[in-house]
């Protein structure tokens, strides 16, 4: 649906050209919720603005739905932008227009509908985002979450195939963030809209995204399904982002406990299996839990434990765990924080 090929972007200033993005290759599939995560200054905002050409790439190509759009101008550019909705961190609503007229704005710009048709469409959009009762209010009379719903309704007005969310939940409290993420997923599911989400919070990626790219200093340092990147972060930056969201319990190997240190990852239905006790009985092993985290990635449950295995037949226990669909990683070394585990990416989602 969206492809970036070797895209670079530099900003020229008095000090000379400052590169913001270096050779970005990204491909977002149709109907996917794709997350782009990174610290501030990593280049996420610039990256998302390349997709609707609010920023022009310095080199490389942008394609939408198989069509190269890099050099579009004038009417073609405006038509492209109408087919891509955008939601902003600070909502960017027109303060002088009511909720209904904010949602009507992109329809008025397109100029293809009559007033009655616009009114009808606005009513349907407001119903979708649950704001039918607030149509006549001005943005300042709304809460942050309500404002963002208006922003989402407005972004959907021209039936876009792609929705870009630039830190859409970063100005919201956790509860409202959850509601807005639920709404976005609902839109993705019901309308098949491809969503690209920029965020600095791993929590947002975990709750809402299918795949994720980690951006650091203008480069993609890690990319993959969220289940993989979130549970087995390989790059230090990704690890730092996961640790920020989860605490470091799940990833830290403590050297204090004796025995074989393993990291076990259960995903899917397997996360709810009473497996560890059975393995302990069958193979005469004991385990100490060193750390762990349990939760959901979108709707997929997961559980991840770092354990120290002692006694019995350790390697047979590992084989049995793997056979049951658990991802088993041996944590080596005694590094205090992130000993690079011998990553064995075997994804048996049970």
């Amino acid at each position: 649906m969206i492809r970036l090929d070797a895209v670079t972007k530099s900003f020229t200033s008095r000090q000379g050209a400052a590169p913001a993005l270096h050779g970005i290759d990204l491909s977002v599939g149709e109907g996917e919720i794709f997350g782009i995560i990174g610290a501030s200054g990593a280049g996420k905002s610039t990256l998302v603005r390349l997709i609707n050409l609010l920023e022009r790439p310095t080199s490389g190509d942008v394609s939408i739905a198989g069509r190269r759009v890099t050099d579009l101008t004038g009417r073609d550019l405006h038509a492209l932008r109408r087919s891509i909705g955008m939601v902003f961190q600070h909502f960017n609503l027109l303060s002088g227009r009511t909720v209904a007229r904010n949602v009507a704005y992109p329809l008025e710009l397109a100029g293809q509908l009559t007033k009655a048709q616009i009114a009808e469409k606005v009513a349907a959009l407001l119903a979708r985002v649950g704001l039918s009762d607030h149509a006549g209010k001005y943005p300042r009379q709304l809460s942050g979450g309500q404002k963002q719903r208006v922003g989402i309704a407005r972004a959907l007005a021209n039936d876009p195939k792609v929705l870009l969310c630039d830190e859409a939940t970063s100005a919201l409290d956790p509860q409202t963030t959850g509601q807005v993420l639920d709404l976005l997923q609902e839109i993705n599911r019901d309308l098949g809209v491809t969503i690209v989400m920029i965020t600095h919070e791993m929590e947002v990626i975990r709750r809402a995204c299918d795949r994720v790219a980690v951006l650091e200093k203008g480069r993609v340092v890690e990319e993959g399904p969220v289940t993989s990147v979130f549970l087995h972060p390989a790059h230090p930056v990704t690890r730092a982002l996961v640790r920020e969201a989860e605490g470091d319990a799940a990833l830290v190997a403590t050297d204090a406990a004796p025995g074989l240190h393993l990291r076990l990852t259960f995903t899917g239905a397997g996360a709810h299996q009473p497996l560890l006790g059975r393995i302990a009985r069958d193979f005469g092993v004991d385990f100490a839990i060193l750390g762990g985290r349990v939760g959901h990635i979108r709707t997929t449950p997961f559980a991840q434990f770092s354990i120290a295995l002692t006694g019995g037949n350790g390697s047979a226990a590992m084989t049995a765990l793997r056979a049951a669909g658990v991802t088993v990683e041996v944590i080596e070394g005694a590094a205090p924080t992130f000993a690079p585990a011998r990553v064995e990416r075997q994804f048996h989602v049970v």
């Binding site: 405006h78 932008r81 891509i84 960017n92 027109l94 992109p106 710009l109 397109a110």
Partner: peptide
């Protein structure tokens, strides 16, 4: 006028004059 509002308008396919 908030720059974000201008950006949002452009992102919705408005011409600079609109």
């Amino acid at each position: 006028v908030d720059r974000g509002v201008i950006e949002a308008s452009l992102a919705m396919g408005a011409s600079p004059i609109q």
